[in-house]
Amino acid sequence: MIEVSGLTKTYGRKRGVDRISFKINEGEIVGFLGPNGAGKTTTMNIITGYISANSGAAYIAGIDVLEDPITAKRRVGYLPEQPPLYPDMTVLEYLGFVFDLKKPKNLAKAAHIAEICELVGLKEHAKRVIKNLSKGYKQRVGLAQALIGNPDVLILDEPTVGLDPKQIIEIRNVIKNLGRDRTIILSTHILQEVSAICERVLVINNGQIVADDRPDNLSGVLSGDRKLAIRIAGPRDNVRKILRGIDGVVFADSTIQAEQGAFDWLVEAQPNVDIRKPIFNALAQANYPILQLKSMDMSLEDIFIQLTTKK
């Protein structure tokens, strides 16, 4: 549905985007993940035809955005980083204007706008003037604007920025529902968002794609289930002796005294060895109860930092 090949965009000497290529299939929800200034917005601006690349091409449903911008733009709904709103208009006037601008075929204007307002939760605020809306509602108007004309492709630049936690969950659900019959690219630097919504993640750093995978694969590949954090009630030296005596343990050390008489331990196992049961049995035998045990699975944050800092 969306294809980008060899996209390069320079700002002066700095490369905003450096030979990026990827393909997004119909119906996929793809997350663009990357630190600020990594090139997410630039890539989106190129796909939507707002700016042009210095080299390379972007295709929407096989249509070159540069060659035939009007046809390509008809298929895309875009929510830029800052929602493009006219503050003096009411929500209804504004959406009506966007409808007239996009001139979608076979859609009844009033019914279509009402449907979109319902979908993004703007129904009660449709008659309000945009400048009086809170940031979260402005963001929704921005999203509504992108949805006008039922485009096949939605490009959302940080769609949940500025929303409160409840609204974030609502908007994520809206996006998920939209993704059933649409292709969506959304950018974010919030990692939970990616794992909550996206089926695929493209991690961008310094204008290049550094990873392209499913969010759960990404964390599985890079971490492995090997590190455990355990809180054990018992004297340090004895516990250490027991832990280091267990088969498959390559590393065990206590970090801090977490509670009276209990220490936090970091234990690392050999690859593909499950050491949880042996640890439990050994400690139970010695009557040193385990108060807490958790796997130090790498979070997306860790992965993100690992991917974007290594050179």
Binding site: T48, G49, Y50, I70, T71, K73, R74, V76, Y78, P80, P84, L85, Y86, V98, L101, K102, K103, Q145
Partner: peptide, 9 residues
Amino acid sequence: TDQLLLTAP
């Protein structure tokens, strides 16, 4: 809002 105008068909 130029982004809206310039990315509209």
